[in-house]
Design a protein around this nucleic acid. Structure first.
Length: 132
DNA sequence: GAGATGACGTCCA
DNA sequence: ATGGACGCCATCT
């Protein structure tokens, strides 16, 4: 095991069973209620660590794995409700998807500040929405 | 077959 | 607050 595959700082990795991992992610995304958003890391923390995946590596890579899953998100899911830990849209700025995501979220009543950020304390999924 | 390209998060200077 | 490095690759031109 521990095959030092040669990739020095591979940053990009993938789950043992990508299809299975993606399915788990999609099942969670499917539950994000309208008007709320969840972060990649938050979702990753909800997906059980695949057997054979090092605890350490999983912690470091799962958020990106969720991103990979979202890049292949099947139609019908509220993909727009997944944003990064900063409360910002992660899709390349300027892309049609980016614009669409923001539009869809605003249509759900979610507000963006001047810097294009969403207040996770207010709109975060399973986060006490009271006060501000 | 080789090279470019990815929907992240955390830590440290 | 901001910028850069780091962390088991896979897939498409």
């Amino acid at each position: 095991m521990t095959r030092p595959t040669g990739g020095p700082r591979s940053g990009f990795t993938s789950p043992p069973s990508r299809a299975d991992f993606n399915t788990r992610v999609w099942q969670i995304v499917e539950q994000i209620p309208r008007g709320r958003v969840a972060t990649y890391g938050q979702i990753g923390a909800m997906v059980k660590r695949p057997a054979g995946t090092g605890v350490r590596h999983y912690h470091a890579a799962r958020a990106r794995w969720v991103g990979q899953a979202m890049a292949n998100c099947p139609p019908g899911l509220p993909w727009q409700r997944v944003v990064n830990s900063q409360g910002r849209i992660s899709v390349r700025p300027g892309s049609d998807s980016h614009v669409l995501q923001r539009t869809l979220l605003e249509r759900e009543g979610i507000e963006f500040d001047a810097r294009g950020r969403i207040d996770l304390a207010r709109y975060g999924w399973e986060n006490s929405p009271r006060r501000r």
